[in-house]
């Protein structure tokens, strides 16, 4: 079984996670830039973070046989801090990089005017750079947030077929599907979706244009949720081809819209015996 986790924050995860993910079948991940739990107060903090997503994290992932790409953006939460807003001006030079396969995560947090501006500007950036966009739906006031998100998407020059709406659930899936966007679901231990509810959604809405992710990060989360959904699908009577569509072909097709997806990770060379390449002598 091959698995592509289309939304996971590996910066917050350990090498044990990479090892377990590989063993579970994960061969590709996309890491969207987001906030780090601790607010940043300077654009330079973002640039160091972007550099990590463009260099260090793919290097780490490759050592465990996993292809790593990223999506870059000013996230909605920090878009509200005027100190961070210059990041928007610097984004174009980062969006030109090989490993960037979408603009994201963008979307709404508290639905403020500053968030309106950031979402609209970054949808335009996606259109201008030939990239799709990963748009998350807010945790609070989700349905209203989805409506507002879809309005901004429709006003932008980015076609809905190049937009992935994420963190969807039972209350938002219908509207999201009607919009023509790709549909993303995050499966979590306590919040968001769980495996069985995910299977019910797949039974109701089919397997087309649906992506499942672990969205694992620095909070309570599980980087193996993608595999657990695959197992739950098989147990519920879905075939292996359905599983492959949802957990590999759909994310590969969506991020493939960038023309930059490279899933052929060279086998890691020289994991130095008895010594950690990762730690490098420190």
């Amino acid at each position: 079984m091959r698995i592509f986790d289309p939304h996971i924050h590996m910066t917050s995860r350990t090498t044990d996670d990479y090892e377990a993910m590989y063993a579970a079948g994960v061969r590709a991940v996309v890491e969207p830039s987001f906030w780090l739990g601790q607010p940043r107060t300077d654009p330079a903090s973002f640039y160091d973070y972007f550099d990590a997503l463009l260099g260090w994290e793919p290097f780490r992932a490759a050592q465990y046989g996993i292809a790593h790409h990223c999506t870059l953006a000013l996230n909605p939460k920090e878009a509200n801090d005027p100190r961070c807003r210059p990041v928007l001006d610097a984004l174009p030079r980062y969006l030109a990089k090989d490993c960037v396969v979408a603009v994201g995560e963008i979307g709404y947090d508290s639905m403020t005017p500053a968030e309106d501006t950031a979402v609209a500007a970054q949808l335009q950036l996606a259109a201008a750079h030939g990239l799709p966009a990963l748009v998350h739906t807010p945790h609070r006031d989700k349905l209203a947030g989805l409506h507002r998100t879809l309005d901004v998407v429709r006003e932008s020059s980015l076609p809905v077929e190049r937009v992935l709406l994420d963190h969807l659930n039972e209350t938002t899936v219908e509207h999201a599907k009607d919009s023509g966007c790709w549909l993303g679901f995050s499966v979590y231990p306590d919040t968001k979706m769980d495996e069985d509810r995910m299977v019910t959604i797949l039974k109701t809405y089919g397997t087309e244009k649906i992506l499942v992710n672990s969205a694992a990060d620095w909070g309570k989360s599980d980087p193996l949720k993608t595999r657990k959904v695959a197992d739950a699908m098989l147990a519920a009577g879905f075939g292996e081809d359905d599983v492959d569509q949802v957990l590999w072909r759909n994310p590969a097709a969506f991020y493939g819209l960038s023309g930059r997806l490279r899933l052929d990770v060279p086998k890691p060379e020289g994991l130095h015996e008895g010594n950690s390449v990762l730690r490098g002598g420190e």
């Binding site: 001006d89 610097a90 174009p92 030079r93 030109a96 990089k97 090989d98 023309g259 930059r260 490279r262």
Partner: peptide, 21 residues
Amino acid sequence: APYAADTWELRFAAAGRHCGH
């Protein structure tokens, strides 16, 4: 004008996509 499109510096970043990685 660090963010102007299509300067050679942007091409420097995109070289692999156009010429093979």
